[in-house]
Design a protein around this nucleic acid. Structure first.
Length: 692
RNA sequence: GCACGCUUAGCUCAGUUGGUAGAGCAACCCGUUUACACCGGGUAGGUCGCAGGUUCGAGUCCUGCAGCGUGCACCA
């Protein structure tokens, strides 16, 4: 028995070295996996491929517990399938994460007293790239610390030239098919970051704002945004509202703050006669609903707030004022003229803010952007899930998936930011051409970049080298997409849509959605609350295997989980228990016959564990192994065997096969023990699963 | 407003197809005659949110309600 078993298990001395040897073995690469042996010891060709494309972490910081959780789940599946004889490919990557990284980097600049608005585009891009690449390298080391058995030789970055080329091809095809169009439609505009955002990148929050009842000639109407009145192009009432029926189609005329106002009265179903006075002002340029009313009634769109959130030259003396400043001034002047009937101070409504920054109130603006037509793509996705070509775990997430499909609006994919993949489009007057190269004299390049999710939405087929590569032909469609439910719409949905559109096949057969990792009281982890668990620090203190078990046991799919240091510590103890089991069994000289009833019992466990993993019930499998090893094997079988040499063969059988079952869960300690067993030279990582 | 999820021991959660409740941590008591004190043995603790229903039998299925959480949503 090796000396090291005389001391408690030392994960720090073990993990780094083991990972290094795994990596050097080449077995992370499915092309280099050894043949498998069947039950009679004959060499067999590996089974079909089993593929997981890793959700590429945003290369703008360190890995957090969420990353560590997905690494654990995906690595478990990959190691399990590898042992079962599949050509297991786990393809790693990193995401440039456009807007989010730019946000992180801008904050860094801010701290240094700098601003991207005072920098050249190129300079800002280069700095962000350097920052991103540095983080990327750092995160790759962290993935190794977590035991990720991914194929580094196939690693991809979202800005790799071949990925960008695929994204361009998709854009061109969508454009040619009429599924991408340039249009002036309402978008969510961030004054702070000077870019538009997609509807998913917004959050609606409740806020209390005064509701002003303004006199508009013969009418009184309610609004929270009196400062937009210079952009009014009509007033609207409900067509069924008898109070105003006689006015419909006529024009009202009154003295406003900056001259005579003439507004048409239109009738539109949108107006709720029960709310306020049943009349609304229609300001198409600064309210998405009003824009739609304008479309229906052919009303002009008059922009009065500029890209910086300031009133423009159409606003007379209010020009140059910021929104809130202008609101105060307008209200004051209206009050002086007696044009405010009343103010409801207790009015609560929702406003739309940047999902990454609640202080950043987004303004609806009508500006030309690139949009993806969602309906035809959504139909593809719906069909794939309804027809069972894509399965979703847990099942209830399917309902959320379908519910979302009911509220579709076209997807704005252009961002006015520097950090991203440039949109390959050229403009000359009203003409548009798609391509990387200038079509010639007089054409100007679109300065915008793609929404990050437009490129990551193509990740499965782009990383595999669609359409001609051997990898694509071998590993696509992939087996399972494992990720958090929080990016079901952002990412999973878009991968399904774009994957089906581009390749005609589903990008993955199964979707496994895990929950969010929260603290012990189910609170969101955040730096300000001070409850953040750093997975890499935990790994150092308790060992990666302990962290992995803490992530797995009792973690139901689609449900948020509570993670505590106590829980992690519990599985460090389990690792040590396993270590001592091995110590005891190794001290027993082999002998005696394999006890059939104990073998039968163990084989039943192996069958259950296998079935649980196959059906994504890894939380049950982990718990069963834990209890079998501790409460049954250690507490009963080993105790019973003491002083009875004829048990030795059985103990060895159970230990060896338990190590195999446990390997995908706790890869490091199982490998370490395995290689200490007498006569074992290879890696448990590529041993055959006990059940075939 | 619509949808989804959760509600089980002090805390955080399991409980896969319905068969008289489990884990980790915490608490209490005992034990160092070795595989392991990074341990072992034991104790205590739950009308499984509420109200109905189906069933021989329900934490598990159905209906309604309540509380909490999340997603979606154009009421000025």
């Amino acid at each position: 028995m090796p000396e090291k078993f005389k001391k408690p298990y030392d994960h720090q001395a073990t993990e780094g070295a083991i990972y290094k040897r795994w990596e050097e073995s080449g077995f992370f690469n499915p092309d280099k996996l050894p043949p498998i042996e069947d039950t009679d010891g004959r060499k067999q060709e590996r089974k079909e491929p089993y593929t997981i494309i890793m959700p590429p972490p945003n290369a703008n910081g360190s890995l957090h517990v969420g990353h560590a959780l997905f690494v654990t789940l995906q690595d478990l599946l990959i190691r399990y399938k590898r042992m079962r004889g599949y050509k297991a490919l786990w393809l790693p990557g990193a995401d440039h994460a456009g807007f989010e990284t730019q946000l992180v980097y801008e904050k860094k600049l801010e701290k240094e007293g700098r601003s991207r608005f005072k920098m050249e585009r190129d300079e800002f891009y280069k700095e962000t790239l350097a920052f991103t690449l540095e983080n990327k390298k750092f995160m790759e080391g962290q993935l190794r610390d977590l035991g990720a058995s991914c194929d580094w030789s196939r690693e991809k970055f979202t800005l790799d030239p071949d990925i960008v080329k695929t994204v361009y091809d998709t854009f061109k095809k969508l454009y040619d098919d009429g599924l991408v169009y340039r249009g002036a439609r309402p978008v969510n505009w961030s004054n702070k970051y000077q870019t538009s955002l997609s509807d998913l990148e917004t959050k609606a929050i409740e806020r209390k704002d005064p509701l002003y009842y303004l006199k508009y000639g013969p009418f009184t109407l309610a609004t929270v945004r009196p400062e937009t009145k210079f952009g009014d192009t009509a007033v609207a009432v409900n067509p069924k509202d008898k109070r105003y029926a006689e006015w419909v189609g006529k024009e009202i005329e009154f003295e406003g703050l900056i001259g005579l106002v003439k507004l048409k009265v239109v009738a539109d179903e949108y107006v709720d006669p029960e709310f306020g006075t049943g009349i609304i002002k229609v300001t198409p340029a600064h309210d998405p609903n009003d824009f739609e009313i304008a479309q229906r009634h052919n009303l002009p769109v008059v922009e009065v707030i500029d890209r910086y959130g300031k009133l423009n030259e159409k606003c007379g003396k209010y020009a140059g004022m910021k929104i809130m400043e202008a609101r105060a001034a307008v209200v004051k002047d209206l009050q002086e003229k007696g044009l405010i009937e009343k103010i409801d101070e207790s009015y609560t409504h929702t406003i739309v803010v940047n999902y990454k920054s609640e202080n950043d109130i987004l303004e609806p603006r009508i500006i030309p952007q690139w949009f993806v037509k969602m309906e035809p793509l959504a139909a593809l996705a719906k069909e794939a899930v309804e027809g069972g070509n894509i399965r979703i775990f847990p099942d209830f997430q399917k309902k959320i998936f379908f519910h979302w499909l009911q509220n579709l609006r076209d997807w704005n994919i252009s961002r006015q930011i520097v950090w991203g993949i440039p949109i390959p489009a050229w403009f000359k007057g009203d003409e548009i051409k798609i391509g990387e190269e200038s079509p010639g004299e007089g054409w100007s390049k679109d300065p915008d970049t793609f929404d990050t999710w437009f490129s990551s939405g193509q990740w499965p087929f782009a990383t595999l080298g669609y359409p001609d590569s051997t990898d694509y032909k071998t590993y696509y469609p992939t087996s399972v997409m494992e990720t958090g439910y929080d990016i079901l719409f952002f990412w999973v949905m878009r991968m399904i849509m774009l994957g089906l559109y581009r390749t005609g096949e589903v990008p993955f057969r199964d979707v496994y959605l895990h929950g969010l990792v929260r603290d012990v009281h189910k609170q969101k982890m955040s730096k300000s609350k001070g409850n953040v668990i750093d997975p890499l620090a935990v790994t150092k203190q308790y060992g990666t295997d302990a962290l992995r078990m803490a992530f797995l046991v009792g973690n139901t799919p689609g449900q948020d989980m509570a993670l505590s240091e106590d829980k992690i510590r519990a599985y460090k103890l389990f690792a040590n228990k396993l270590w001592n089991i091995a110590r005891f069994v190794l001290s027993e000289v082999r002998g005696g016959e394999l006890k059939q009833e104990l073998k039968t019992e163990f084989d039943a466990l192996a069958a259950e564990v296998t079935d649980d993993i196959e059906n994504y019930r890894v939380y049950l499998a982990a718990e069963k192994l834990y209890h079998y090893l501790w409460d049954r094997f250690a507490a009963e079988i080993i105790e019973e065997s003491k002083g009875k040499p004829e048990y030795a063969e059985t103990l060895h059988y159970i230990l060896e096969n338990s190590l195999k079952l446990l390997h995908p869960f706790m890869p490091f300690i199982t490998e370490e023990i395995w290689q200490s067993l007498p006569g074992k030279k290879g890696y448990i990582m590529v041993e055959a699963w006990p059940l075939r």
